[in-house]
Design a protein around this nucleic acid. Structure first.
Ligand SMILES: [Mn+2]
Ligand SMILES: [Mn+2]
Ligand SMILES: [Zn+2]
Ligand SMILES: [Zn+2]
Lengths: 137, 137
DNA sequence: AATATAAACGCAACTCAATTGCGTTTAGAG
DNA sequence: CTCTAAACGCAATTGAGTTGCGTTTATATT
C-alpha cells in the first residue's frame, strides 16, 4: 500500500505516522488474511517493531475500525486489515477445523445490522463458519 | 434437573456418572446463561469439584454437544448447557459492551447451516451480536 | 459380592498470549 | 526550533487454561 494512503488512513484515525505502523498496515494489507502477533512479528522482523508495540498499534487500529480482531478457538487473536470503519465484522469468517486456517469471506456480505429487538441495541455482529476449507475437504 | 435425566444424558454421551458432573450439569442448566470456570467453581464450591476437573468435564461435554463454549472478547471462555447435540451454536449469542453480560438468544433460530459454497464444507456456525442489553440501553 | 480396568479426579507445576510499568525516543503541532 | 503527548523497547507480570502423575471411583465382568 502506498505511503501516502497510509498517512491518510492514520491521520484520519487521529494516529501518528511512524515507520513501524506503516510497515504493520502494509503487511496486514498484503496478507489479506487474519494474522497472529507471532506471524506479524516474523513478517516485520527487519522492521524490528516490538511485540508490545504491535499489540498497542493493533489495539488503536481496532478502536479506529481499521482492523478486525478474531478468536478462532485457540485463544490466539488474529488481526485482519479491513478499513470498513467498524470494530465489528462486515463479513463472515471461515475457520477450518483441519488446518486451522482462517479466511475472510469478503464476498459474503452480512446484513447491515440485524434489527434490534426487545430492548436490545445491536451495534455489531460477528459470524464464524467452521468446517473444512477447499484444501482440506 | 433430575438425577435420572442427568444419568441418561451422561450415559448417552458415553460418560460416567459422577456426583461432580451431575452437580455441574445441574448448575449449568439452572443458570441458563453462559458461565465462566470461575463462576462455576464459586457455584459448586460445596461440591468441591476441582478447577481442572471442571475444565476436563466441560471439554467432554463440548465434544458430546452438551454445552456451547463461547469467547466474548475478554479471552475467558463461557459455557452454557444446550444439549442440541452440536459442538456449534444453534442460536446466536448477545454480548453487552457495557455490562459484559452474555446471553443465549434461544428465541432466534439460526438457519440449519449456511449452504456450503466454492469447495467449503460448513459444519457449524457461531453468531455473536454485540451492543447494549435491555438493562444498559 | 468380589475383582479388574479404564475413566475421573486432585494437586502442583507449568505454559504462553497478552498486559503492565517505566524510562526513553520521536512525531508533529505551534 | 521547542515542547508535549504519543509511540516505543525492554523486563517483569498476569492469569486462563493445560499437563503430569499418582490416587480414587464408576461400572462392567466374573
Ligand atoms: Mn475479515
Ligand atoms: Mn447458547
Ligand atoms: Zn483447511
Ligand atoms: Zn448490559
Amino acid at each position: 500500500m502506498g505511503e501516502e494512503k497510509i498517512k491518510e488512513i492514520l491521520h484520519q484515525a487521529g494516529l501518528k505516522y511512524t515507520p513501524g505502523r506503516a510497515a504493520l498496515i502494509d503487511f496486514l494489507w498484503r496478507a489479506s488474511r487474519p494474522l497472529t502477533q507471532e506471524e506479524i512479528s516474523l513478517g516485520l522482523k527487519e522492521s524490528g517493531l516490538n511485540k508490545v508495540s504491535i499489540y498497542r498499534a493493533l489495539d488503536s487500529f481496532l478502536q479506529a475500525g481499521l482492523v478486525h480482531r478474531l478468536e478462532s478457538g485457540d485463544r490466539v487473536w488474529k488481526f485482519a486489515f479491513c478499513g470498513c470503519g467498524s470494530r465489528g465484522h462486515c463479513h463472515p469468517h471461515f475457520i477450518c477445523r483441519a488446518c486451522g486456517k482462517v479466511e475472510c469471506l469478503t464476498k459474503v456480505h452480512l446484513p447491515e445490522v440485524a434489527a434490534s429487538a426487545q430492548g436490545y441495541i445491536i451495534e455489531e455482529q460477528e459470524v464464524y463458519f467452521k468446517g473444512l476449507c477447499p484444501g482440506c475437504s
